[in-house]
């Protein structure tokens, strides 16, 4: 591509967390004022084409998760504006504020946001694969197709993996077993060694899509007690099977809800919602705790669409 001047996307713009360090608000304004601003035109972008690769992810820029609703985005936008707006941060905030404005404009408008989500390959639909906010582990670097998962049922708490890759694994001292803290927190070699070092082979490579469900289900759930009997905590004996059936259920659920929505177009939205809720509740009776979780995702997605 022919670049006549430095493009906007190529100026290294620190993401929110990095800016905090050297962008002390208010005070340095005078220093920045001395230099006249240099405006760079973005010349290598074709009209209509979204040069997504070279641009900062809007969600990262605003520091919000991809499924945030308008209210969250608005709050984040205002908070950042209060730090970097040229009125406060001086002329240096100009470029950053321009990007904030662009990100805000796109994410606040539903059609633009959908287009943008598609361009960065992010699914935000109600039944999408994006559980990232619900899982336990965080990601270092980009999302990869494979992820690490410790089957805590099998783990004997030998600490070998934590020893070899301490940035990836951590011990849950209460439960006495290891857990993935950060996906790809160490380099590939260290991770390989740590996986191999497990004496019971309880560290698995799993598909990223399954990860959230697995991590969710492996956490011990409170068991319903009857008087003094029962109670305590439990988790599925075979977490992989449980995850499979759980995902299946989720997809069925999605189908039902979609049908329910289609059938009930004549109803008022409140009625439709009540009915869909009732259908779901019956189905989800068994997973009473999951129900809360479901309403959480469905609820937030509903907000997104509005």
């Amino acid at each position: 591509m022919s670049v006549y001047v430095v493009s906007v996307g190529q100026i290294s713009v620190p993401i929110a967390s990095q800016v905090h360090g050297h962008l002390d608000t208010r005070k340095p304004m005078s220093r920045w004022r001395q230099r006249c601003i240099v405006i760079r035109c973005h010349y290598n972008k074709r009209p209509g084409g979204r040069a997504s690769a070279e641009k900062k992810n809007y969600y990262e820029l605003l520091g919000v998760s991809v499924d945030s609703n308008a209210q969250k985005i608005k709050e984040a936008y205002r908070k950042l504006q209060k730090k970097y707006h040229p009125d406060i941060a001086g002329q240096k905030g100009h470029e950053y504020t321009l990007m904030l404005n662009e990100a805000y404009k796109v994410l606040m408008r539903d059609d633009l946001r959908r287009e943008y989500d598609a361009s960065i390959g992010q699914m935000r639909g109600p039944y999408g694969t994006n559980y990232s906010s619900l899982g336990y582990s965080s990601w270092k670097g980009p999302l990869r197709p494979q992820a690490l998962f410790v089957d805590e049922n099998a783990c004997i708490g030998c600490r070998e993996c934590v020893h070899h890759a301490s940035n990836t694994f951590q011990m849950d001292e209460a439960l006495g077993c290891a857990r993935v803290k950060v996906q790809y927190g160490d380099d590939d070699q260290k991770i390989e060694v740590s996986v191999d070092s497990c004496p019971v082979n309880c560290i698995h490579w799993v598909d990223t899509e399954e990860l959230a469900a697995l991590e969710f289900l492996i956490q011990p759930q409170p068991k319903e007690g009857y008087g003094v009997f029962g109670g305590g905590w439990e988790r599925p004996a075979n977490v992989f099977m449980a995850a499979k059936s759980f995902t299946k259920q989720l997809n069925q659920q999605a189908g039902t809800q979609r049908n329910a929505r289609a059938n009930t177009e004549e109803e008022t939205p409140a009625q439709a919602e009540a009915r869909a809720n009732a259908v779901m509740k019956i189905k989800m009776e068994r997973f009473s705790r999951l129900w809360k979780w479901m309403t959480h995702i469905f609820g937030s997605n509903k907000l997104n669409r509005e």
Binding site: Y4, V5, I37, C41, Y43, P86, G93, H94
Partner: peptide, 13 residues
């Protein structure tokens, strides 16, 4: 910019 200064840039591609 924030102080309402307008600059117009034009170039050939």
């Amino acid at each position: 910019d924030a102080s309402n200064v307008l600059r117009v840039l034009a170039g050939v591609v």
